[in-house]
Amino acid sequence: MSKIIDELTKGILEGNRNAIARAMTTIENEEDGYVRLLSNIYERIGRAYRIGITGPPGSGKSTLTNHLTKILRKEGFKVGIIAVDPTSPFTGGAILGDRIRMHDLALDKGVYIRSMATRGSSGGLARQATELADVLDAAGYDYVIYETVGVGQVELDIAEAADTTIVLLVPESGDIIQSLKSGLMEIADIFVLNKSDRPGAERMQKDLEYALHLRESDHDWHPKVYQTVANQGKGTEELWTEMKNHRSYLDSENHLVNKRDRRLKNRIETVIRQRIEFHFWDDKRKKILKNYLESEKEKLSPYLLAEKMLEKLLKTFK
């Protein structure tokens, strides 16, 4: 097993596309050896800059990703794209269609596109997206773009995994900023008002800027709003400049280091939590839980049951 993994590692570091692909599958499915694989590449990561692009359905995320990638390619960078789409909660399947909008990148050897379904992972998405990006990072990709639809938890996870997060809106998404509760408002480093040639764009820009002005901020980066017409490439150069501004902001005063440290901490915590849970729920304990539900729930409170089940484990912590 470990030999296969080490060969895979070698392939990744050489930039072999088949190896990258296999490695990603190994990680996504948490197949045997995936921890070793991630450890193997650990010291080779940290070079790639990670960008998150999110927004409501139909806001033009793939189109913008496509154009930004072309700009990055012109500057000589290699680009990895991780396109995330939701898994159907009913069937566990997914249709991942983001490549349709990026078909002119399909044969560019300096671009690697991977589609990823959210699957069932509650809270694990940020970790997995980070891990897939690690593979691309280790393989020598200079930029990794996460592209995902902003629905609920997903965009928060992606923002967690990104260094710079771009939130895309369109003139028709006015009601989103009406309610500042929306997670999209909180995670953006840069706002993009796409399809800005549509009626209502100016008004939307003003509303958005007003909402941002009201927002309390605990740091000195203030998100700005950029207008684009992504399908014509309009405004994307300006956006790229602002992305570089954000990167230099992060590079100053350790912001990027802090952000990445936070991510690392989060990752360790997630791994520990998931590993403990995985080992904890062995057949014996599963049976205890089943028994409880069948015949003991009237007699014993769930807290006492949990306490009882944890008894041994908690002792080892002392």
Binding site: T91, G93, I95, L96, R99, I100, S115, A117
Partner: peptide
Amino acid sequence: AMRDAGFEVIYAG
């Protein structure tokens, strides 16, 4: 149909 069978479908179009 394949989505509903639980597959992950990459639709290239």
